[in-house]
Design a protein around this nucleic acid. Structure first.
Length: 425
RNA sequence: GGAGAGGUGGCCGAGCGGUCGAAGGCGGCGGUCUUGAAAACCGCAGAGCGCGCGAGCGCUCCGGGGGUUCGAAUCCCCCCCUCUCCGCCA
């Protein structure tokens, strides 16, 4: 969420960011409702002050008649407070609903436009030219008995799958490889819960309820299946006051990720590209405000290092304003070349790094104390994919397929898979 | 799942109807001492919100939500969490 007190002052800037994001949020309404809340708050403060004064007066000895009159007046003051409290709660609910709709600011360098307007920043590697007819990952996976979507559908449902044989080794090796890099980069590793409370889920910026939600909820407990370890890592720092010396914090979390993919039907989402469950190793960072942009670049650099190690040709794009999620101030995606995607291959998102500045931190109430600062400030929070396994496996199978029908394992994964090649068979 | 004990400021911990926004300790900040540091001693310092140009004034907060009372950290109810024991289980 945005800083409620700076809404009026920055309303022009916020309106501009809503326009660029194609958000329907109404800054003017939020400003108006905020004024209403503060007016009611002032009223409540005054009513409480009167009540407190009255209570102080009741501490001395009183005659029975005086005591009775005093008690009656006390009850009246209490009712007055209750009335203002009701008004304040209603005003606050209206304000918070409007505030929650306001997205974060947008970094000035973020390109305008929507999904197709991301700006390409760089490329690494070359899309391979096969001297045979390449297959997509579903064909390879079926032929080498690595992926079983039919079993997934039978046992669980559409877009659920089994990993099998060497794909299982790949799944584990990817986690281990990602961790190897992240440990070198100073991250603290975590395996996090796969479930979280709805308040935490909402604090990170996922909407845990409603028709469009990406989040699964349990029927028998007030818990959600996490869509990313971003949720559980961010939750670590909810309701906390950090020392400046604690920052920056770098955490790496491995979790299963669950997504309903409501409304995603019909998108380019064949096979492993869009599934309901996958394993992901996630980076999460907490920084001082002045350090978040440098951290964002560093997270991107780590992602590039990881995909170079996997020998996957990729490009880096700066996501356009209209395609940013509400918490993201700026987002860099890494898109790997996927030969089986579309007709003749195309770029597909494989990794993503977002700087959410103080937007999540404010909602999670995560602040830090400067050495000589007067008031505590919200921290900045960032997240980035180290490796999202389903898509990484997709890309590895398609990029490293060989003429003989086998799949080459890149050097970096060999120590962790114990293999240099899958198949042929 | 059952029984018991608890959840208090950045951390630990006392308080158990008005004298409490809360003792004490640790940690933090400033100072004295020292060539410097440590130790010792002295002092400062909770979080958040509203009003005010400002000095400042006021309000809220003792796990969360209700209730009793003129008055609740303190009494009652519900929920969440932690610990100990038992049960179950990989």
């Amino acid at each position: 969420m945005l800083d409620p007190r700076s809404l009026a002052e920055r309303s022009g800037e916020i309106a501009e960011s809503c326009r660029r994001r194609r958000s329907q949020a109404d800054v003017e309404a939020a400003v108006r409702l905020h004024a209403e809340v503060t007016a009611r708050q002032t009223e409540l403060n005054e009513a409480n002050r009167r009540r407190n004064e009255h209570q102080q007066a009741g501490k001395r000895a009183l005659s029975p008649e005086e005591r009775q009159a005093h008690a009656a007046e006390g009850r009246a003051l209490k009712e007055a407070v209750a009335r203002v409290e009701t008004d304040l709660a209603a005003a606050r609910a209206r304000f918070e609903a409007e505030l929650a709709r306001l997205p974060n600011f947008v970094h000035p360098d973020v390109p305008d436009g929507g999904e197709d307007d991301a700006r390409e920043l760089s490329r690494w590697g070359e899309p391979p030219r096969f001297d045979f007819e390449p297959q997509d990952h579903l064909q390879i996976g079926a032929r080498l008995e690595l992926l079983d979507f039919e079993a997934g559908a039978k046992v669980t449902g559409q877009k659920w799958y089994y990993l099998k044989n060497e794909a299982v080794l790949l799944e584990l090796a990817l986690q281990r490889y990602a961790l190897e890099v992240l440990l070198q980069e100073g991250f603290t590793p975590y395996v996090t819960p796969d479930l979280a409370r709805p308040e935490i889920v909402a604090g990170i910026g996922f909407n845990p309820r409603g028709a469009e939600t990406q989040i699964y909820s349990l029927a028998d407990a007030d818990l959600c299946l996490v869509g990313s370890a971003e949720i559980t890592l961010g939750g670590l720092y909810a309701d906390s006051l950090l020392a400046e010396a604690d920052l920056p914090i770098r955490a790496a979390g491995i979790s299963h990720c669950f997504r309903t993919e409501a409304g995603a039907a019909g998108r380019e989402s064949k096979g492993l590209y869009r599934v309901h469950q996958f394993t992901k190793t996630e980076m999460f960072a907490v920084t001082r405000p002045e350090d978040s942009e440098a951290m964002h670049q560093r997270i991107l650099a780590i992602e590039e290092r990881i995909f170079q190690g996997l020998e996957l040709p990729y490009r880096v794009v700066d996501i356009a304003a209209g395609d940013l999620g509400a918490p993201a101030y700026r987002k860099f995606d890494i898109e790997a070349w996927m030969p089986g995607r579309g007709a003749g291959g195309s770029w597909g998102e494989i990794s993503s790094a977002s700087n959410c500045t103080d937007y999540q931190a404010r909602r999670l109430r995560c602040r830090f104390r400067r050495k000589d600062g007067k008031r505590n400030e919200p921290v900045h929070m960032l997240n980035g994919t180290a490796i999202s396994n389903a898509r990484a496996i997709l890309a590895l199978l398609e990029i490293h397929q060989c003429a003989d029908g086998g799949v080459r394992i890149p050097e970096a994964l060999r120590p962790f898979t114990g293999l240099s090649k899958i198949g042929p068979r």
